[in-house]
Amino acid sequence: MVLVYAESHEGKFKKAALEAVAYGNETAKVLGTECAAVVIGDANEAGTLGQYGASAVHHISSDNLAHFDSQTYAAALSGAATALGAKVVILAHNSAGKSLAGRIAVKLSAGCVTAANAVPTNDGAFKVKKNVFAGKAVADYQIDSDVKVLTLSGNSIKPEVVGADITVSPLSVDVPASKIKVISTNKQQGDTAPLPEAELVVSAGRGMKDPGNWGIIEDLANAIGATTACSRPVADIGWRPHHEHVGQTGVAIKPNLYIAAGISGAIQHLAGVNSSKCIVVINKDPEAPFFKAADYGVCADLFDVVPKLTEAIKKAKAKTIY
């Protein structure tokens, strides 16, 4: 059986959880087995996971899981995997999944591959692909252990409705008390997706000249509902917050659309964004290396082009309701 941890936020399942369930379902098909989901906390909407391919949903409820702690959550999830006889455990490659995968792998003596981006294959050996060297190569990993742990890179599979709601069954596992005391949780305002999950990203670099100029970037991002990002030097000098820094030493992303304005396209920057489905580069230097990695290029002054692009988008939006 394939077991997916479907992470919820205030009872809601976000894209990462639905992707994990859809991926779990595809993995189960490859192995000729079923995919079960496990949820922690509020399970009111957990039955909807059946729509995305879960054939069972198990709910773990414990006061010791009131806040996220990789130690207690790993105990709960590996306990569930053992109780249910899971052969593959799947997590999203996000902050929770990444801090859990290694722990669960140790607990289950499992081989672990993080940031998988394709459905595993199983002809003779269990293999799964991930990007390595910051997107400059792909590695096909073979896992030889009986139990396997995978985390799924965001935007690697499209969750589709393939079934109907199912009933949620309680599952009781031993969970130790947490040794971490949470003092505060601070969420940034705004309703755009966090960078690693974003499908549309608008990014800018040193070509912006001054942090006060970012209004045109935000206008463009707002026009399409995109998340904003930036190059490293811009975050280093404090023009933009650190969490916006994409690249080899920042966040690695693979949105459907990446629009880069005033970014030269240094190899370390490309490393974090070159898996994007479509790249648009706006740069006034025709020799900017970024053009070689782009799908569409506009060679012009960004202060002129970015507002024009925003207007063109607004115009197109007014015409077509998409």
């Binding site: 003596s109 499992a110 081989g111 672990c112 591959v113 050996a125 293999k127 990007n131 390595v132 997107g135 400059k136 190569a137 792909v138 590695a139 096909d140 990993y141 073979q142 896992i143 030889d144 252990s145 070159n274 648009v280 580069v281 053009f291 070689k292 990695a293 782009a294 799908d295 569409y296 290029g297 506009v298 060679c299 012009a300 002129d304 082009v305 024009k308 692009l309 207007e311 063109a312 115009k315 197109a316």
Partner: peptide, 27 residues
């Protein structure tokens, strides 16, 4: 428990399409 069975390089990009800066409607 895991090993790389094979590495591969990603496929090359098809090449960039340059857009006239005065025609953002086209982009």
């Amino acid at each position: 428990l895991v090993k790389v069975a094979a590495f591969a390089l990603p496929a090359d990009k098809a090449g960039v399409k340059m857009i006239d800066p005065d025609n953002m409607d086209e982009l």
